[in-house]
Simulated scan of single mutants.
Amino acid sequence: MTVYIIAQLKFTRRELYDRYQARFMGVFSKFKGRLLVADEHPVVLEGDWPRDKIVIMEFPDDAAAKEFQNSAEYREISVDRKAGADAIVLTARGLR
């Protein structure tokens, strides 16, 4: 079953987040995921959304998503993401 990782970010130290972002695709491309959305200007249709960016990644299954999330390579660069942005990160199972 397809699994999505969804991140909603509020930048706190943009220079650190930018350093993370510059290294992200080099790490991400080693895994079985697809980057579907990385938007710093989403349009809010309803409600209050006090964030700056949304990221949606697709993985073929839960194991692939966890392999990426728990990899040494991602943990290394995620230090800058965590220092540079307040994030809500979750997984969601697809319908298939």
Score class of each variant (00 low, 15 high):
54 I>K: 06
50 P>Y: 01
5 I>M: 13
43 V>L: 14
78 S>K: 09
36 L>P: 12
26 G>R: 03
80 D>M: 01
74 Y>W: 10
70 N>D: 15
76 E>W: 01
82 K>F: 12
47 G>Y: 11
95 L>Q: 12
82 K>M: 14
23 R>F: 01
65 A>H: 06
78 S>L: 07
53 K>C: 12
51 R>F: 15
10 K>C: 00
88 I>Y: 09
71 S>R: 12
39 D>T: 12
19 R>A: 02
72 A>T: 06
37 V>D: 09
48 D>T: 13
38 A>L: 10
57 M>R: 03
48 D>V: 13
1 M>F: 02
33 G>D: 05
81 R>D: 02
90 L>S: 10
51 R>S: 04
12 T>L: 05
47 G>L: 11
66 K>R: 15
9 L>Y: 06
69 Q>K: 13
81 R>M: 04
41 H>K: 14
48 D>I: 12
94 G>Q: 11
11 F>C: 08
16 L>M: 08
26 G>L: 02
91 T>M: 14
59 F>N: 08
15 E>K: 07
18 D>A: 10
29 S>N: 08
89 V>E: 13
89 V>R: 13
23 R>D: 07
4 Y>K: 08
27 V>M: 03
76 E>F: 06
45 L>T: 10
53 K>I: 00
46 E>N: 10
9 L>M: 13
41 H>L: 10
34 R>T: 10
89 V>L: 15
